[in-house]
Design a protein around this nucleic acid. Structure first.
Lengths: 144, 144
DNA sequence: TTTTGTTCTGGAAATCATTCTCAGAATGGA
DNA sequence: TCCATTCTGAGAATGATTTCCAGAACAAAA
């Protein structure tokens, strides 16, 4: 499982002529271990061996390779998580107060219907559909 | 219609002890005339009488009063549009390439089912549900 | 293994969207 | 009119992110 993750990461980076260095491997492991999307300061704090500028650079590389996903909210820092195809399709619950992001999923039926409707909508506007993003905003248990 | 818009804006600003000044009125008119969410540079270019720092301050005020909504993407600039209750419930199609944002809607049935499912999901995670945001990303006709 | 050309690294400097500051202007009520 | 409050705009400050650059790590070939 973990090996598979690294093997896939290597392959995807190679596809864009990039190397799977130790720094990038650490990033992937930190993201894999996290149970919710992390900001860069959080990541650097979790592993002090990482240099901030390299983390920015490497997360961009991982994102470009399709290994990580960037989540932008109104909060000051962006957040990162492993791409969905390393886990499962899910959405985000963003706390308006503290910025914390939790994952949640929708019942398969709802998800399918939604996806079909989105596909239709994109086509109608002439867009080539890529992905969708569904966020819920609210107040998390701790901030209530 | 337009009068109603301004009357509502006045009321909502007053509710948070703020005034509906001419600069804010211009902003509301620019947003009402736009057929897609605008960035601040775009707004300033549309009406040269607006000072950039005031536009930032006033859009924040309009957002706080529930008159405008801020849309954050990975693009460099945030975008603003009038709140949904001045128009209709809709979602956004974001072009990965140029950052352009278009509006689209889902069939009412899908929307209802989705909303119910989201409400359930929020409750399950212990969040107090506020709103949701659904974005489609893809490539717009012009960038293909 | 040495060579060679490429990609990485980290610290510091640069960028740039956004926010803040402040002195004067506009506003609304008494 | 006077007072207290809120606004305004220009520029300075902030701060997340990006870029630079000189040296390190790497991969492939000889």
């Amino acid at each position: 499982m973990r090996d598979d993750l690294h093997a896939t990461a290597t392959r995807r980076l190679r596809r864009v002529s990039q190397r799977y260095t130790s720094g990038r491997r650490v990033l992937v492991e930190v993201l894999a271990a996290a149970e919710h999307p992390l900001t860069i300061p959080e990541i650097v704090e979790l592993d002090a061996s990482l240099a901030t500028s390299s983390v920015y650079r490497n997360l961009a590389a991982l994102e470009q390779a399709g290994i990580a996903t960037k989540i932008v909210t109104s909060q000051e820092h962006a957040r990162y998580e492993l791409s969905e195809d390393f886990g499962h399709h899910h959405h985000h619950l963003v706390c308006i107060d503290c910025g914390r992001v939790s994952d949640f999923t929708l019942p398969a039926g709802v998800e399918q219907e939604l996806d079909a409707a989105l596909r239709r909508a994109a086509r109608k506007e002439g867009y080539v559909h890529d992905t969708h993003r569904l966020d819920l905003t609210g107040t998390c248990p701790e901030c209530q």
